[in-house]
């Protein structure tokens, strides 16, 4: 749907995620000091807490595609994944209109299964490791896609995809991104909280 007016970010979400992250950071410090007591309350407590927090919905709760609704998905296929049939069936059932798949090696997703369900491959860049990318869309979609070089310099540059389609008289560019893991940077910022 096209938004009629801008909405501001709900601060409740920011506060909630801030509190969860601080709690988890504190937990990891406690767990590190007590790691010889695996099975203790220190270990079980956050697992139970996280289970409560992360009860996931289902793609079945999402609205079905229509003139006003488009379903867009992103999937990291994981380049070492050997369960290609399982992942192909899951993505097929999710019924996306457009799906951007990352870490596509040519072996970790069965495109023929998806083709039988009415998907066409828009972009097919098979690479070893994490650098592959694949864009598929429903047959009835008028969509073009291209690969663009990563703007990041260095040996770990991962290419991006950009796809363009029309929807409700709007031209939309969909950028598929796989960013580098900057774990040391994240840890530094976590300590600053």
């Amino acid at each position: 749907m096209v938004r009629s007016e801008k909405e501001t970010i709900d601060m409740k979400f920011v506060l909630r995620e801030y509190l969860i992250t601080v709690l988890l950071a504190k937990y990891f410090v406690i767990f590190k000091k007590n790691c010889n007591k695996i099975g203790s309350l220190f270990f079980k407590m956050p697992c139970i807490l996280s289970k409560i927090l992360i009860i996931r919905g289902s793609h079945k709760q999402l609205p079905q595609s229509s003139k006003e609704v488009i379903r867009i998905g992103i999937a990291n296929l994981y380049f070492k994944n050997k369960e290609r049939d399982s992942i192909s069936n899951t993505l097929n059932k999710a019924n996306f209109d457009i799906l951007v798949s990352l870490e596509w090696t040519g072996h970790n997703l069965d495109l023929s299964t998806l083709a039988k369900s009415g998907y066409k491959t828009i972009l097919n860049v098979q690479r070893q490791g994490t650098h592959g990318i694949c864009v598929i869309a429903k047959e009835n979609m008028n969509i073009q896609s291209s690969l663009i070089r990563s703007p990041v310099k260095g040996p770990c540059r991962i290419p991006l995809s950009i796809s363009r389609f029309s929807w409700m008289d709007k031209k939309i560019s969909l950028v598929g991104v796989h960013a580098l893991l900057l774990l040391h940077h994240a840890k530094k910022q976590l300590h600053q909280l």
Partner: peptide
């Protein structure tokens, strides 16, 4: 109009 979808390996903070 832009949609950016991906594994950004970054958290909200």
């Amino acid at each position: 109009l832009v949609i950016i979808a991906g594994d950004l390996n970054s958290t909200w903070f």
